[in-house]
Amino acid sequence: MLFQRILTALVLLPLVISGVLYLSTPVLAFLFGGILLLGAAEWMKFAMLEGAGEKALFLVSVLLGMVGAYLLLQVPGSAYWLFLASSFMWLLITLAIVRYQPERSPVPGRFTKSLLGILVLVPAWAALISLHGYSEDGPLLLLFAMSLTWVADSGAYFAGRQWGRVKLAPLISPGKTREGVYGALAGVTLWGGLLAWLRPEIGVPYLIVLFCLLACVISLVGDLFESMLKRQAGIKDSGNILPGHGGVLDRLDSLTAVAPVFMFGLLLLGGGR
């Protein structure tokens, strides 16, 4: 499993980095749209949709949501409110995870889970595209946002395997440990410190590190949220398209949470550009 995980990462990372750095924003929007539609197909397992009609309606709704988000982003100032709303939704999801108790927490129905899928996937796609086209440094900003989730995930994975003892959220994801979280936080702290050292013009070092730590926490929330949905649906992975990683959503669960929050923070610091 570890060998497959590393091999898949070695194949995908150069492709992702090259695409982000060298493709135009419209082309990347199309490619990301296709990837997130694959994620939407996996989300149908979470929502336990039945029949071709329900599944087709969901996929069309996600696609129309992307078109609507693209049109909305053409309106000056609308991006700020879109990503504010998405960040607020992730705050509510965080509270729901903290308070989660299987015997007391109601399991959302198919419609609610389908709506959640749209509210998770569409803003994530819009944030990825907005980050890439934000400025001349947009591709680097997008890569940095992505790298935060990679570093957090890798830190949690290896620290958890080596030292993991105390369960983090056994009712949601029995495999995750507090030691894994510490590994993720340590990795992201070092990554943020390296960024502050290499690019001191970006801002005050401790603020950069704090921002990276916030992204790490949001990354964890995205991971736990998918784990909760998989547990409710009675499945282990969202899919099997990526050897060693599972499905598309197993690889993008953290990024779907981090991207809109990261973009909102960028807009907030930039005065709602």
Score class of each variant (00 low, 15 high):
42 E>Q: 08
13 L>V: 15
81 W>K: 09
18 S>A: 15
253 D>M: 03
36 L>K: 04
131 L>P: 08
39 G>K: 06
270 G>K: 12
114 S>T: 08
162 Q>W: 14
228 M>E: 08
153 D>G: 02
115 L>Y: 00
252 L>V: 08
253 D>S: 02
47 A>F: 00
26 P>D: 09
159 A>K: 03
84 L>A: 15
272 G>K: 12
78 S>D: 04
256 T>A: 08
273 R>Q: 11
268 L>V: 04
240 N>A: 13
232 Q>W: 14
3 F>T: 12
71 L>R: 13
236 K>D: 01
166 V>R: 15
97 I>V: 15
101 Q>L: 09
87 S>E: 02
251 R>G: 13
202 I>G: 11
209 V>C: 01
266 L>W: 15
63 L>K: 09
20 V>S: 04
135 S>Q: 11
213 L>C: 00
239 G>R: 05
187 G>S: 09
80 Y>M: 13
134 Y>K: 04
261 V>A: 04
84 L>K: 05
225 F>H: 03
26 P>R: 09
209 V>G: 02
270 G>W: 13
265 G>Y: 07
230 K>N: 02
55 K>W: 05
172 I>F: 13
37 L>D: 13
100 Y>W: 14
1 M>E: 15
204 V>S: 13
219 S>L: 05
254 S>K: 06
83 F>D: 06
249 L>A: 02
188 V>C: 05
41 A>I: 10
230 K>L: 01
62 V>C: 14
28 L>K: 05
150 W>N: 01
250 D>V: 05
145 A>G: 10
213 L>S: 00
237 D>Y: 04
192 G>S: 04
169 A>L: 08
49 L>W: 06
156 A>I: 09
55 K>M: 13
137 D>Q: 15
269 L>H: 04
22 Y>E: 00
220 L>Q: 06
61 S>H: 02
162 Q>V: 14
139 P>K: 12
233 A>F: 10
81 W>A: 08
96 A>E: 12
81 W>R: 12
227 S>Y: 04
134 Y>I: 03
15 L>T: 05
141 L>T: 04
55 K>L: 06
183 G>I: 09
156 A>G: 03
176 K>G: 09
59 L>F: 07
112 T>D: 00
110 R>W: 01
262 F>A: 14
86 S>Q: 08
214 L>Q: 06
37 L>H: 12
214 L>T: 14
144 F>N: 03
183 G>E: 04
225 F>W: 13
142 L>T: 14
66 M>H: 06
231 R>T: 14
73 L>V: 01
141 L>S: 12
202 I>R: 12
95 L>Y: 09
180 G>C: 11
226 E>V: 11
243 P>V: 07
232 Q>P: 01
258 V>G: 08
133 G>V: 11
38 L>A: 13
158 F>Q: 08
181 V>S: 11
248 V>D: 01
117 G>M: 13
93 I>C: 06
250 D>P: 02
95 L>F: 12
62 V>F: 06
190 L>I: 14
90 W>K: 03
15 L>A: 14
196 A>S: 14
102 P>N: 14
60 V>D: 03
186 A>N: 00
79 A>T: 10
86 S>Y: 07
123 P>K: 11
36 L>Y: 10
209 V>P: 02
93 I>N: 10
184 A>C: 07
178 R>Q: 08
135 S>W: 03
223 D>I: 06
235 I>Y: 08
238 S>P: 02
